[in-house]
Design a protein around this nucleic acid. Structure first.
Length: 585
RNA sequence: GCGCUUGUAGCUCAACUGGAUAGAGCACCAGCCUUCUAAGCUGGGGGUCGCAGGUUCGAGUCCUGCCAAGCGUACCA
């Protein structure tokens, strides 16, 4: 309907141009929006206000000209000028019933579109280091990313979801070393655990597995392991330097066996993460290994291109990328003085790889604490000769956790974090997803565990699900009470639906495709949540105001067709959110 | 210091990207269950849109300057 009106207006403008009321060079973007106040009709446009200035005309006069030039359309009942020069459209009520027919005809496809025209979008999200289980901070990215992916799929994009596995690099070495040290403890060695190692209980679990499988094959005495090391931080040393030397010691002593320990940690945690995400309703098309970029030479190749494009130089024994020439604050190291490439180097190769695979758009979903990283990645793409505009980084603010009045600090290494799995166990997958996506992603979010845990009626997800369950319940009652259902009869009598509650529902239902399109193109799933809450409100209000199972066959079937349409849209929306639509509650 | 993000009802947040009288949910107050699930509905109070300027027909939304919070500012990710 929106698009129809926009077409009518653009035809009117063309007419005015041929009448020389408007000049040919005016080509404004025609914007039709739904009105907030029913007194303003169903749709409104500010086109006359926009054009008034450049056309040097009185906006109300111009609005009159536009209205006069509008082609007639049977869906449009009345057109009015209001306020400073708004043009308000009143839609023929009979046209509004069409949405019920559409929903019944298209079913689960109602709301989907082909706006994306099959364009390829790669969306990378979560990508947490496999150094420990996912915690509640990752949950928000997981929920947000999967819903954005669903929305884009629903609007006709080809979506490829990817998790970048940091299975190489220093953090993983710290994990492997931590696993080994706990293994040594299990074997009976005693020593002070490094302050910068991973202290979570899950590490002990992996170590136990290692011990069960390999016995004491990897044991070295504590004396040997800790001989001649620098001081750890609690003793006045540097924890980073300390842990790095412990890692070197581990590699040295374990030699080829180091990889066994390393992979034990990596695979165990990665399997846990995969399972966790599946249970959370978040799936991927690909798990992309960072190590593979090293093994197949992608990193070297990317750096070689940067070098030949004259964007690399050497300083202080390290290789630097001239990102400051391309908008970054300063230059960045890609190869450290110890010969190791930085994570940034593999990120360059990874993002280049993504574009090489032919995606039209890349979406990265990062925690907001990584925002400073954006300019350097974009700079790298530019330096490689790629189009950095294809990369779209969406930031998700971390949800700060509260336990009642007390803020919970989260750090993977200190081991005191609430895992995503724990959260799911406590509040359930539906509520967790709903809460995560309920707010704009850039908005800081307070996640009160006490509140989320309490299975109280305050939980908005129940409100929406309850609307669906109520429709199901009515349909069950239909049988029990001996009423019949006749969809065709209902469709023939939709004009029976003339109460204000029904009109409101029709309008809300008709908005659904607009909401999906907007939520998808803006990457804002919270719009869908807000919509579903409004739809549920309209339905609950209607439910309380009118009986659906009435004797009158025409009215009953018209109403049943309406509430079945509501049920369908609730299912469609909840499905996109990855939330269940229970038939009974 | 500099950069990014955010400041809207007591609390948590919306506001169709510059439109008409800024809206919901909690919380609070007053009502509605022999009738399709009361996890629901109806009504009510509650606002200097952080502050000050500017841009224009029109600003919560855009520009500038302050104030406050979070994050970033590594040869860590």
């Amino acid at each position: 309907m929106k698009k129809q009106l926009e077409t009518l207006i653009s035809e009117a403008l063309l007419t005015l141009k041929t009448q020389s009321i408007l000049t040919d060079d005016l080509n404004p973007v025609i914007h039709v929006e739904r009105t907030r106040d029913v007194a303003h009709g169903d749709f409104a446009t500010n086109i006359a206000l926009i054009l008034a200035k450049t056309a040097k005309k009185n906006p109300r006069q111009l609005a009159e000209n536009i209205i006069a030039a509008l082609p007639t359309n049977e869906a449009v009942l009345k057109v009015e000028i209001a306020g400073a020069g708004f043009i308000n459209f009143f839609i023929n009520p009979n046209a509004q019933y069409q949405v019920i027919v559409d929903i019944h005809a298209t079913g689960e496809n109602f709301g989907k579109s082909n706006r994306g025209e099959g364009k390829k979008i790669q969306i990378e999200f979560v990508s947490a280091n496999p150094t420990g289980p996912l915690h509640v901070g990752h949950g928000r990215g997981a929920a947000y990313g999967s819903v954005v992916g669903n929305l884009l799929t629903a609007t006709g994009f080809y979506v490829h979801r990817e998790y970048y596995v940091n299975d190489a690099g220093r953090q993983m070495d710290i994990l492997a070393t931590s696993v080994w040290l706990r293994y040594l403890e299990i074997s009976g060695e005693t020593f002070v655990f490094p302050s910068n190692a991973y202290r979570g209980d899950y590490v002990r679990g992996i170590s136990q597995k290692l011990f069960n499988q390999y016995g004491k094959n990897f044991v070295h005495t504590a004396e040997t392991v800790f001989a001649n090391l620098p001081l750890d931080e609690p003793k006045g040393g540097d924890k980073e330097i300390y842990i790095d030397t412990v890692i070197s010691r581990a590699k040295e002593l374990l030699n080829k066996d180091y990889r066994i320990v390393f992979d034990m940690g990596l695979n165990d945690i990665l399997e846990d993460i995969k399972e966790d995400l599946i249970e959370f309703g978040t799936t991927y098309d690909q798990w992309f290994s960072e190590r593979s970029l090293m093994d197949d030479g992608s990193i070297d190749k990317a750096l070689a291109v940067l070098k030949s494009n004259n964007y690399l130089y050497e300083k202080d024994g390290a290789i630097w990328f001239k990102s400051s020439e391309l908008g970054d604050e300063k230059d960045r190291v890609v190869i450290r003085d110890n010969g190791q490439h930085t994570y940034f180097a593999s990120d360059i190769a990874y993002h280049w790889n993504k574009l090489e695979r032919g995606f039209d758009t890349l979406i990265d979903i990062w925690g907001a604490d990584h925002h400073g990283y954006i300019p350097r990645v974009k700079a790298a793409l530019t330096a490689l000769g790629a189009d950095e505009k294809k990369l779209n980084v969406l930031l998700v603010q971390f949800a700060s956790l509260w336990r009642g009045e007390e803020k919970v600090s989260m750090s993977t290494r200190s081991g005191e974090f609430v895992t995503l799995r724990e959260l799911r166990d406590e509040v359930g997958r539906d509520a967790a997803r709903f809460f995560y996506v309920m707010r704009r992603s850039e908005q800081h979010m307070d996640f009160d565990l006490e509140l989320a845990k309490s299975k109280s009626n305050e939980n908005p997800v129940f409100y929406v699900q309850y609307a669906h369950a109520r429709v199901c319940s009515v349909l069950r009652q239909l049988q029990e009470k001996g009423f019949t259902k006749n969809a065709v009869l209902g469709m023939a009598n939709l004009s029976e639906l003339n109460t204000e509650h029904e009109t409101a529902l029709l309008t809300t239902l008709a908005r659904y495709p607009e909401v999906i399109e907007r939520a998808a193109t803006q990457y804002e799933p919270h719009l869908l949540i807000n919509y579903l809450r409004e739809l549920a409100t309209d339905f609950h209000t209607y439910y309380n105001a009118h009986q659906f199972l009435v004797e009158d066959d025409k009215l009953r079937n018209a109403r049943l067709n309406l509430i079945i349409a509501v049920q369908q849209v609730l299912v469609n929306g909840l499905t996109l959110l990855g939330i269940s639509a229970p038939e009974a509650m």
